[in-house]
Design a protein around this nucleic acid. Structure first.
Lengths: 105, 105
DNA sequence: ACAGTTAGTTACTTTATGTAAGTAATTTTA
DNA sequence: TAAAATTACTTACATAAAGTAACTAACTGT
């Protein structure tokens, strides 16, 4: 059994270990976005994006806002809890730039 | 198509989005460890741990050292590339402590 | 000799992810 | 005005990844 790792930390890691979760949060760090924009920006399928956004909404990380314009516009954005991922993303960025230099063309 | 996200960043995220990868790195940040110790500390199955350690070795994040004692001892440790994950883990820890306070008993 | 440990592997099941097409409500274009 | 496109999804199905449990092989301690 394993009881020696902090459960909060474990849960956070489990979130990030869900495929696409991190990329979705990173994508939303650049501002509120619509479903189909995220779909093409990330190269993710509608099904998985839909699932992930629902999960992230349930976790209180993403907020779904309906603008009842005509046509209706639905935007996804980060809550404070989601915005607080920024330092993590910055460190991932730093690590990747140091240790995974882009391949030569 | 999606070409606007840095490929290095994407690769780093894909690493972390592999289940257990983050937890294994975190576990090894506390020092070199043997297979069966990690197995029980993380509550991961031997099969998956074996797979992940192989992947991480190929990525140059984990080093496998054989001590030809009797009986033979095999230890897994982080390379510099692996140790450089520490700031990321610290930020994940910080986020989790702020936003995922442990449930009441 | 027998049970236990270590570092795995193998076979099989379950879950997660990906792919492609479909839908319903609009809106733009010919 | 009919046909095509867009948005925000869902559904059905295929494949890949993870989990479970049992097994192996080499040793070791009792």
């Amino acid at each position: 059994m394993h009881t020696w790792i902090c459960p909060s930390f474990e849960k956070a890691m489990r979130l990030l270990a869900q495929r696409w979760t991190g990329m979705i949060i990173y994508q939303l760090l650049s501002g509120p976005q619509r479903f189909c924009h995220m779909e093409s920006a990330l190269g993710i399928s509608g099904k998985v994006l839909s699932d992930r956004l629902k999960d992230l909404e349930n976790e209180g990380i993403v907020k779904r806002t309906i603008y009842p314009e005509t046509p209706v516009r639905i935007e996804y954005s980060l809550t404070d809890k989601g915005l607080a991922f920024e330092p993590i993303m910055r460190e991932v960025e730093r690590w990747s730039q140091t240790w995974l230099p882009s391949a030569s063309p």
